[in-house]
Nucleic acid binder design. Structure first.
Ligand SMILES: [Mn+2]
Ligand SMILES: [Mn+2]
Ligand SMILES: [Mn+2]
Ligand SMILES: [Mn+2]
Lengths: 222, 222
DNA sequence: ATAAAAATTTAGACAAATCTAAAAATATGT
DNA sequence: ACATATTTTTAGATTTGTCTAAATTTTTAT
């Protein structure tokens, strides 16, 4: 494991996240968008990362992480999510306040620190946004989850994650007491605007399609 | 408070520490030594910091922190020492293992994070090495302390700090069960090699001058 | 199939932080 | 006081990461 700069780590993480969208290879422009930078800068960085064998690159063909690159991405993601849990559980931050701080903390280098933090937090499987936390070998729990918007009236489940984790969306959920872990039931779907009547916990409310399209639910079997 | 790079913060901190040695102004060469870099690099950085009004600089005359520079140094030192307390108290690190990790953590930017960490740790006044932790206004407790080597036979006090905080020295102290907070009594001084017979806690032992010259003691009055 | 559009790469520049080698200023010793 | 030694600064180069503008390749549309 050679040393990586913060910027290199951020690119690798960005590529990893884009790869979760199912694409075989990630386009320069997509990565530029993700990293909030110019395609020319991405090309430069891609060459360095390819040199270090963290990704596969053929000119004009986009990139794909190597095994080594994937492992590195998972290490950074592990740190990011563990720090988020720390900030929420130990320092009382709200779930919409932790991302930017975790963006900095994820680059702190010390395997011992990460593993002890993991232990302090009781080896959490998921972060405050419902995303899985890789263990020290890069393995993580997966669980069945569907977007609420993809569920049918009459079905039910448990609220387990968010797709959009912007502060605005998270605060909106707070305001309506929509929390991870709560049972959720789809009562009715308005075909006109696709808004949904749901029961969350023991309260009923109506939410727009945009909200339903950003909430993950673990469906109850049957 | 404009943004500072990690490197700028490290220089400011280095200058602050050298200034504690009493000098009116800090020489380029002294700072180069401290920062483990070349004098020419120091000159470059000094110009940038002077531009930002963090220090006073006249060519060939060395540097001195401005008010603003001092405040900035204290903010970084506060973070460094709070993180050291966190690592020891909450993650169970030994006092000789925390410095390098704190060197990284001290650059994390978030006033809220620092203040909440401070609260989690119960607003500690001193770090694991006995150094004072500035509060959010940059104020810190001072306490009377003398090098053990400067104390006379028959006098006594409490062990409150280390001058050398290298891992080797700290491990040496661990091995001989010399811990901060323990009462210490000077029994006899060998004039030949200045080694000391002391009682620490309830054990007697003999230590070399080099050890005594790196241990701080709060002397008992009278 | 070719021309136009879009995506990607290259070329050249810049800021931060470092280095080596050379020049300039300051300090020291007789 | 003046030559020598030491310290400090300057000049020029390098690495990382970014940018703009131009060139090149790929994709899309007619
Ligand atoms: Mn996050
Ligand atoms: Mn998260
Ligand atoms: Mn330290
Ligand atoms: Mn310390």
């Amino acid at each position: 494991m050679e040393i990586m700069t913060n910027s290199e780590e951020n690119y690798i993480k960005g590529i990893y996240h884009l790869s979760q969208g199912g694409q075989h290879s990630i386009a320069t422009s997509a990565l530029a968008e993700k990293m909030d930078t110019k395609p020319s800068s991405v090309t430069d960085m891609i060459k360095r990362l390819s040199e270090k064998e963290l990704l596969h690159y053929k000119k004009y063909q986009g990139v794909r992480l190597t095994e080594k690159g994937t492992a590195q991405a998972l290490r950074v993601i592990r740190k990011h999510r563990l720090w988020e849990v720390f900030l929420v559980d130990k320092l009382g931050f709200a779930w919409d306040e932790v991302h930017d701080i975790a963006e900095q903390l994820e680059h702190i280098e010390s395997e011992m620190l990460v593993d002890r933090l993991d232990a302090l937090l009781n080896f959490p499987d998921f972060d405050p946004h419902g995303d899985p936390i890789p263990d020290k070998n890069g393995r993580f729990k997966t669980r069945e989850k569907k977007l609420l918007s993809a569920m049918l009236p009459g079905s039910s489940g448990i609220c387990v994650g968010v797709k959009d984790s912007s502060s605005q969306f998270l605060k909106f959920l707070d305001k309506h007491q929509i929390e991870l872990g709560k049972p959720i039931e789809i009562l009715e779907l308005e075909s006109f605007d696709r808004s949904m009547h749901i029961k969350i916990g023991d309260r009923k409310l109506q939410i727009s399609h945009q909200i339903a399209a950003n909430l993950y639910v673990k469906p109850k079997p049957e």
